[in-house]
Amino acid sequence: MNPSQGPSLKLRRTIALSATLVVIAVFWGIAEWEAARLGRPAFFTGFTLLSGLVILMLLGVRRRLPFWPLGSVSTWTQIHLYVGLFTTAIYVVHVPVLIAGGMLESFLSIVFLMVTASGFYGIYASRTLPKRLTAVEGQHRFDRIDWVRHQIAAAAEKACQQISEASAKQVLQTFYQQALSPFFVSRPSVAYVIAPNGNRRRQLLGDLKELDRYLEDEGRRVAGQLAALVRRRDDLDYQFALQLRLRCWVVFHSLLSLVLLAAALVHMLVVLQYIG
């Protein structure tokens, strides 16, 4: 396969989106037609929905079979996205209200909506977070983040210990103990991981800058080093937060999709039982 051939991504998207819309329209038309001749469109849409779910689950199956030439996972992800869109539309036809009545049915609706919502969030996240990750310095591997964090903490400690000027020693080491050490040694807070922001960084850097007036040459140089380490550490935490978010999202989405498939099968059995 030659990676440089084939249509552009934009063109591919336009074609796939139009095709999906056409298919949705056709299925919707069939459901309407069936309703008009007093058939049971819910059967048709229900089975379509279930098949949709099965196709959606195939992405996870493909991912776990890396050794077979089953088409690239990225192709499967594309199929998944459009089938996801299609399934959502069919859901709307199948369950005209937002959340269906009945215990099992309302549970099923909620799970479906959560999976779908998380799916749409996933598209957004996987299209935007990588750019934000790329924008910060240093591309850290997730499994190495703890290690890098320790490195930074050790470097900061060393920088502080090596000060020889008495005045600088006093000023910087006090600040290190009070503000920097807790920051470097501990992991980022849960609040930061959920919503990373620049407050901590700004505050620490501002405070460090403040110290300048108590410092001479050597002290300022070390303060500069510490400031650089604060930035590095903050960038690292930012990387950690966003990468963790991406990872948690996949786990959430795929686990919940398993629950959904199970619930959908039970729903089908119940319905068949009830009718039969």
């Binding site: 990588p130 990750l133 790329t134 591997r141 990468q243 991406l246 996949v250």
Partner: peptide, 8 residues
């Protein structure tokens, strides 16, 4: 890197 979600 603009597309990579670092999923490994």
């Amino acid at each position: 890197l603009h597309r990579c979600t670092r999923c490994d």
